[in-house]
């Protein structure tokens, strides 16, 4: 556990492979999101026919099934809708991060996202607090958008 300052990897003799965090495997229709994230831009898939914004995105618009779409630049602002703090019983690769915060973040553009809240004391978390996006380059290929207090 984190407060013991001993890595779960050393404690249990886990291999590097067992400690690998799962990364998103982009699909044909989500690749532009991850390409933009790598450039530290947050984008959303907007239907050119009906204006619906889908997140997570799918092959075609979930409102009207049209293919035509554009990727719009999100404001990078959000509000904290609800949250949880993982203290125990997570997969090994996340063990040394405990306690860490998972949250539902509402975007002014409409979608809600699951993400981590970072750079914030757990005691200061509050429903409705203003957030702004930050980018965590977790591998050469993948950058995860996360959120911190605005």
């Amino acid at each position: 556990m984190s407060e013991q300052n001993v890595s779960i990897k050393d404690l249990l003799g886990l291999s590097d492979e067992e400690m690998l965090k799962p990364l998103p495997i982009p699909t044909k229709w989500s690749q532009p999101f991850w390409d933009a994230a790598k450039e530290h831009r947050l984008v959303l898939k907007k239907c050119s026919t009906c204006g619906n914004i889908d997140h997570p995105p799918y092959l075609y618009c979930t409102a009207c099934q049209a293919d035509e779409h554009e990727w719009i630049e999100a404001s990078g602002k959000g509000t904290l809708y609800a949250y949880a703090v993982n203290h125990f019983g997570v997969p090994f690769p996340f063990w040394d991060d405990m306690p860490y915060v998972l949250a539902m973040v509402d975007l002014p553009e409409g979608p809600r996202m699951i993400s981590n809240i970072v750079e914030c004391d757990i005691e200061k978390l509050a429903n409705g607090m203003e957030l702004e996006v930050v980018f965590d380059d977790v591998s050469g290929e993948i950058t995860l958008p996360k959120w911190k207090p605005a």
Binding site: K21, F94, M104
Partner: peptide, 30 residues
């Protein structure tokens, strides 16, 4: 962690079933 959560959009953040229920609980209470 994958049963209740999306492997592309949620699991990479360390999401778990317990965390899913926890945030629903937190929001419901609030």
């Amino acid at each position: 962690s994958i049963a209740g959560s999306d492997v592309e959009w949620e699991v990479p953040y360390g999401m778990t079933y317990n965390a899913l229920a926890a945030m629903v609980t937190q929001g419901y209470m609030a």
